[in-house]
Structure formats: structure tokens, C-alpha cells
Amino acid sequence: MRSLLAAMLLVAFAGALTGASPADCRMHLHEKVALLGGMDDPEVFVWDSRFRLAAYQTGTYDVAKSLLPHAWVIPPGTRAIVIACVPNFVHPRYRGFTDDALGIIMLNGPYRGRSGWVMSRDLRRMGSR
């Protein structure tokens, strides 16, 4: 119940801060997903704030390193549900693309019930490869 309340607050907070519509997002709200990083490192960082998520991706080496206490390392394949989206919020430093910041609640594994923020690239739709 507390998790659900926190998720609702997260959605309301994200929507209030940004003018962008979740309709522009690559994932749909309430969509069930699985967490999966790159092939060479499949684990995923889940952040306690979308701003830290963005700062980690855009910041210098030292800035990114200093943010690590605010992240969990989530094993690949952990299931989650999308509860918030801020389109094109993340601009990775060395990469030539922008990505959505997605608020999720994890549905299984050691962090079941916890919510956090990830990039849409670290999510796979359930049933998709």
C-alpha cells in the first residue's frame, strides 16, 4: 500500500515538474518491463532521483562517481512496471542521443516493491528480446 502511494506521488511529482507529456515516451505508463543493461554489462543502475540519473549520465567522471550511493545495482531480468516518464530528460555525456527518464516499481527480486528511475534503454518490454 505504501509502495503504491509512493508511486502515485512520484507520478504526480514528475508530471508537475515537466511540461512534457508521457505520451511522447518510448514506454507506456503501467507497462510491464524487465530491466536489462548492455550486452557487456547487463546489470542496471536504478536511481533514487531522476536528477541523479541525469547527472550520472551527463556529469564528469568524478561527479558520476560521487553519485553512486544513490543507486542500486539491479540484476538483469528484474521485472518492473512503468509508473512515470519524463521524455528526453537524459543527455548522456559521450553519447549522441537523448533518453527518457522512467519511474518504475520493481516487481520481483531483492528490491521488490522499491521504486526508482532508469533510462528507457535499460528496459525491455515483457515478451520482447
Binding site: G38, E43, F45, K65, W72, Y94, R95
Partner: peptide, 24 residues
């Protein structure tokens, strides 16, 4: 530990991003 996991993930992220940038 989780801390080592985090650091490992961090360094891998950094190197992955840099290598992609250099490749481009």
C-alpha cells in the same frame, strides 16, 4: 558487496560510453 557491484557497474558504464564516443 553491493558497493563493489556499484563500482563495477560505474566503471563499465564509463568505459562503455567512452568507447562508443570514440568509435563514433
Amino acid at each position: 558487496t553491493d558497493d563493489i557491484d556499484k563500482r563495477g557497474k560505474f566503471y563499465t558504464d564509463q568505459e562503455s560510453a567512452i568507447s562508443e564516443s570514440v568509435r563514433t
